[in-house]
């Protein structure tokens, strides 16, 4: 999953996941943001966001199943 040899547009999966996670929390360091802005494409962020939302929904459903 890592293409470190080609730096510009592609971000690593981990980087997308981190960006999306912090986006959901609503906090992001300026330095991280700058690296996100330079290496992630909008499509990656949107797809990552949708997957993140789906995961969030599923984790909530699991919590609900556990407590009921």
């Amino acid at each position: 999953m890592k293409d470190d040899n080609k730096q510009p547009p592609k971000g690593t999966l981990l980087q997308i996941a981190k960006a999306v996670f912090w986006a959901f929390f609503g906090v992001r360091k300026q330095s991280d943001l700058d690296s996100d802005a330079s290496s992630l494409t909008p499509a990656q962020v949107i797809i990552g966001g949708l997957i993140g939302a789906a995961l969030f929904v599923m984790s909530l459903i699991i919590v609900v199943k556990i407590v009921t």
Binding site: W22, A23, F24, F25, G26, V27, R28, K29, Q30, D32, L33, G49, G52, A53, F56, V57
Partner: peptide, 19 residues
């Protein structure tokens, strides 16, 4: 303070508001 956090939080609120 925390411009980037503000951007991310806005996006987050928007996504969460749909569920």
């Amino acid at each position: 303070f925390g411009y980037s956090s503000m951007v991310y939080a806005t996006a987050s609120i928007a996504i969460l508001s749909c569920i």
